[in-house]
Simulated assay, not measured.
Amino acid sequence: MTLEIRPDDPSSPAVRALVTAHLAGMFANTPAESVHALDVDGLAADGIRMWSAWVDGDLAGIGACKDLGADRAELKSMRVVDAFLGRGVGRAILRRIVDDARERGIESLWLETGSTDDFVPARRLYLSEGFEECGPFPPYAADPLSTFMTRRL
């Protein structure tokens, strides 16, 4: 499998379709007040860097990083296409985001993910890549459906 990770535009057709599917899945399984995933417009906002992963011309996943100021950034909108789950795509995107953050002088990365069983694979990935659970960080409030994590770079 040849994996290419590149900066991307969230409005490109393939990425837009994946973001739309990602949001639909979030809203189907989580109350709206606990969904923190960004839509296409949110991913296109200033201060957000987005990447896509491609395998043999097929979109395999996406991930983004949102600047929080004060040398901090937040991991956003990590999603792997179902056909590519378990093949290292999410880990590769995460590592690319971490490398880019380091290059830009970011000192810590933060994230919010789900706390239910559906999110166990995501939490395991983040833990295996050096993230640790923490309390909520701005702009989040405590939520039993959220797990918050951080990692020093």
Rank of each mutant, 00 (worst) to 15 (best):
V19Q: 09
H22N: 15
G25W: 08
P31M: 06
A32E: 05
E33K: 07
E33N: 15
S34T: 03
V35S: 00
H36F: 15
A37D: 12
L38H: 13
V40A: 15
D41S: 15
D41T: 09
L43R: 08
A44Y: 08
G47I: 12
I48M: 09
I48G: 09
M50P: 07
W51F: 12
W51I: 05
S52R: 08
S52P: 03
G57V: 02
G57S: 10
D58L: 12
G63R: 00
C65F: 05
C65K: 04
K66T: 05
D67N: 13
D71L: 13
D71W: 09
E74W: 01
L75Y: 01
M78S: 01
R79I: 02
F84A: 08
L85W: 13
G86C: 05
G88H: 06
G90K: 06
G90M: 07
A92G: 02
I93A: 06
I93M: 04
I93Q: 02
L94G: 01
R96A: 13
V98D: 11
D100L: 07
R104M: 08
I106T: 15
I106M: 06
E107I: 06
L109W: 03
L109G: 06
E112I: 03
S115F: 10
T116M: 13
D118T: 13
D118I: 14
V120M: 14
P121V: 06
R123E: 01
R124M: 11
Y126V: 01
Y126A: 00
E129S: 09
E132A: 15
C134I: 07
C134M: 11
P136A: 14
P136E: 06
P139R: 10
P139L: 10
Y140A: 03
A142Q: 12
D143H: 03
L145V: 04
M149L: 12
T150S: 13
R152I: 13
R152Q: 14
